[in-house]
Design a protein around this nucleic acid. Structure first.
Lengths: 141, 141
DNA sequence: CTTGACCCTGTAGTGACTCCAGGGATTCTA
DNA sequence: TAGAATCCCTGGAGTCACTACAGGGTCAAG
């Protein structure tokens, strides 16, 4: 399988595939006579694995750890659990702050009604007020 | 005000302040005889404004547009509205995908109960299964 | 007179890609 | 069989918003 076929089969950009190889997440494939990369089924599976982890927003360094567990199934899975727990904690923290963010933006958006001069714009006024340390509609909670 | 004082007053890292200057978000301050940066009140306000926007996760390029509105209050505020709307849309899209992510991670985490070999780990099994295109507990929804 | 806190510039590193220049190989069509 | 379109290669730079560092200068206190 050439890189373009692998790309189509997995939906992963060609440049990204080469990037994974350089980053040592994907082992260097065999080369044809013309120097083209030649992938096999195991490359496809490994790439799909990486992308699934990335869809779960797991950092590449952690994906690399997981790959090493696949390669040595004898080892204890405690670190896997820990890794997923850490990822879950990261996602939840980010989720909480993004909820707050959404509330703030909605409040801010409500300050502007229809077209007028920037000097009268409630949004801009609120943002400037916040810079002055005054209570602003988006951060007064 | 020297850069250290500005940093303390705003809670913004010194390196970040210099970065904002280089990125043209903060105008270059006057210099003392020894070459130290000398900030005034307007720098402090502008920096606070930038940080407030960043707390709302507004990209620096958009912050720069907002700053230009502060500098020219005559212009129409339509773009401000649009900018906040775009930011809100980004946040909401991200929020939705992170909710899905959380569900997936929770499901995945439930696959592993207690310590055992990686080869028997439900989490790893599910991740590998997903790579094979089988339904996995975290993406079957 | 030395110590320590502060400041300067310029450069490189982060993560996870993405894009591009400048070339070679292969395949399809006229 | 010529030319065009498509594929592939390498190496390097760019993205975003910082962060860290090397290697120096400045200043006040003890």
């Amino acid at each position: 399988m050439r890189i373009g076929e692998l790309s189509k089969a997995t939906g992963v950009d060609i440049e990204t595939i080469r990037y994974y190889e350089k980053a040592q997440l994907l082992s260097a494939p065999a080369r044809s006579d013309n120097g083209y990369r030649s992938y096999n089924q195991s490359h496809l599976e490994r790439l799909a694995f990486i992308r699934h982890c990335r869809a779960l927003d797991i950092p590449l360094a952690a994906v690399q750890r997981l790959l090493s567990f696949i390669d040595s199934p004898q080892s204890d899975c405690g670190e896997i659990d820990h890794l997923i727990d850490a990822q879950l904690a990261r996602v939840r923290a980010r989720l909480a702050s993004m909820h707050a963010l959404e509330r703030q933006l909605v409040a801010l958006r409500g300050q502007c009604t229809g077209p007028h001069n920037a000097s009268e714009c409630g949004i801009l006024h609120d943002l400037v007020a916040a810079a002055h340390g005054e209570a602003c509609v988006c951060h007064q909670n």
